[in-house]
Design a protein around this nucleic acid. Structure first.
Length: 495
RNA sequence: GGGCGCGUAGCUCAGUCGGUAGAGCAAUUGGCUUUUAACCAAUAGGUCCUAGGUUCGAUCCCUAGCGCGCUCACCA
């Protein structure tokens, strides 16, 4: 037992057992959702279809009020709450053990559905069954859990103590479901690719490194599924998508969690224009699924996701906000200095840093930023009409990058050259070795293809109006709380 | 990693201009058959985040650390 278990409640567990009652019975009891009972009872003036029927409700006891010979005991389940009324005269045999029941306990209550004098739908109990005794007391009934640390650490309490939290995660599930259904309707195949990668690639980020004992080799937790999914396009699967959990060994913020979910999809014979169509389609559907229409309010600003979204050219945005041409190195260096951006010696990175500093905050969105300089797009195909830029877009909402797409590079020679350049780069986030197996895949011929990656967590933030990525992750990354957890090394844990 | 803020009962919070702490809810006991933040009375519950320092005395002041939040940096 931890010190959260209350001695009085532990004593009640013993008392229940002494009375021959199992406080943790093996079988559950199926009931009717609380919300259905509330609705089904109607009002005293307009009785609902369930009024007067014998019903059962199963859930957590919260907010009990004891009047001596009558106890009002609301029961909460996933659907909501319904009040139950326990009367001594209807529960004669059971009555003496009522004191073994506390707020937080999981119970089943059976009885006739009726109303109180004030018209509150109420299950008038003829039977009360303990399904699980809570030895830890619930949070304070009015304020609930407000300490964000406690909410994230003890989500198993937060979810029922803060009902809005549950709604966010129900919406997250709906968003995933709608996107999946949409893509399947477009002929896409959902696939799963490795999470343990022998080489890092498909994005630029610091990786987590782990070790496989039997193979005696280091492996990277994937930072992106991109190169595997494109291998499947070479393999002829034509349209594939994956809800990929990616891992990046970088800082935490309201927009960053070390593991996050990215939807990536690839479509043969498509280009980035087709990716725009899919992006607009899935985001609009997802928004409607959770908000009823194409509007979502995020950080006190309303966004409209009715297609088509705005488009703007990277080069033009650069000129407009940075005040110089993207390839005017002297001017860009001057601008970088003015903004206090450190120069790593890589001009394309510096140029893009200037773009991000000058432009990103202005991208209220939803907006597609189109046609990025080819130097910062190692996996994208150059635009035939203007080889200075790659056929790539990023979609922004609230100044936040939500997704990234391009017409995929499928020239093996060009790909190999760009990989070699990356490896030679001083950037510590560049891959350490060329992925020759991927080059080899391209040598077999990858059809022209469009690809797209969408940050699911950020999309959920925007669509559900949550300011922090932690509020859309059930268990956001936190430092371990207990000293024991900190001091237990992997070896001690038997790993 | 930098800056700012916070850390007191199971929960939500007061408070002590330095003399080892209180309220409400939760819990326990008693009362109450129509409440819905029920009510009334009583009881119990605290390493005041940790470790040093200053002091006759530290929960309070100082230093360091730990944890959390916000923010900046980082972030294809």
């Amino acid at each position: 037992m931890t010190d959260l278990a209350h001695p009085d409640r532990i004593a009640k567990v013993t008392r229940l057992r002494e009375q021959g009652i199992d406080p943790y019975p093996a079988r559950g009891i199926q009931g009717t959702p609380a919300a259905e009972l509330s609705a089904g009872a109607g009002t005293p003036d307009e009785p609902g279809p369930l009024l007067g029927q014998s019903v059962t409700v199963t859930g957590r006891l919260l907010g009990m009020r004891d009047f001596g010979k009558l106890i009002f005991a609301p029961v909460q389940d996933l659907s909501g709450r319904v009040q139950t009324g326990w009367q001594r005269d209807s529960l004669t045999d059971w009555w003496p053990q009522r004191k073994n029941y506390d707020g937080g306990d999981i119970v089943a209550v059976t009885g006739e559905l009726g109303h109180t004098q004030k018209g509150e739908p109420t299950v008038w109990a003829t039977k009360v069954t303990m399904l699980s005794k809570a030895v830890a007391p619930p949070p304070e009934k009015w304020h609930g859990l407000t300490d964000t640390e406690q909410r994230y650490r003890r989500r198993y309490v937060d979810l029922w103590a803060t009902p809005e939290v549950t709604q966010v995660f129900i919406k997250r599930s709906k968003i995933l479901s709608v996107i999946r259904t949409y893509l399947e309707g477009e002929g896409y195949l959902e696939v799963e690719t490795p999470t343990l990668h022998p080489l890092m690639g498909g994005a630029a980020a610091k990786p987590f490194i782990t070790h496989h004992n039997a193979l005696d080799m280091d492996l990277f937790l994937r930072i992106a599924p991109e190169l595997y999914l494109k291998r499947l396009i070479v393999g002829g699967l034509e349209r594939v998508f994956e809800f990929a959990r990616n891992f990046r060994n970088e800082g935490l913020s309201t927009r960053h969690n070390p593991e996050f979910t990215m939807l990536e999809l690839y479509e043969a014979q498509a280009d980035y224009h087709r990716m725009i169509e899919l992006t607009e389609g899935m985001i609009s559907l997802a928004c409607t699924a959770v908000n009823g229409d194409n509007k979502a309010t995020f950080r006190e600003v309303e966004y409209d996701f009715t297609p088509p979204f705005k488009r703007a050219s990277y080069l033009e945005l650069f000129k407009e906000h940075a005040g110089c041409e993207y390839d005017d190195q002297a001017a860009v260096h001057a601008k970088a200095k003015e903004l206090g951006i450190s120069d790593t010696g890589e001009y394309p990175k510096l140029m893009n840093d200037v773009f991000e500093a000058c432009v990103e905050d202005t991208l209220t969105g939803p907006i597609f930023v189109m046609d990025y300089p080819v130097e910062i797009c190692p996996l994208a195909k150059a635009k035939p009409e203007d080889p200075r830029v790659a056929e790539r877009f990023e979609i922004f909402v609230a100044g936040m990058e939500l997704g990234n797409a391009f017409s995929e590079l499928n020239d093996p020679e060009e790909q190999e050259r760009r990989f070699v350049d990356q490896v030679a780069s001083k950037d510590p986030e560049s891959p350490g070795a060329v992925d020759y197996d991927y080059v080899n895949a391209l040598e077999y011929g990858m059809p022209p293809a469009g690809g797209f990656g969408l940050g699911i967590d950020r999309l959920v933030m925007v669509l559900t109006g949550q300011d922090s990525i932690r509020d859309v992750l059930l268990f956001p990354a936190m430092r371990p709380q207990t000293q024991a957890a900190i001091e237990t090394t992997p070896e001690e844990a038997g790993v």
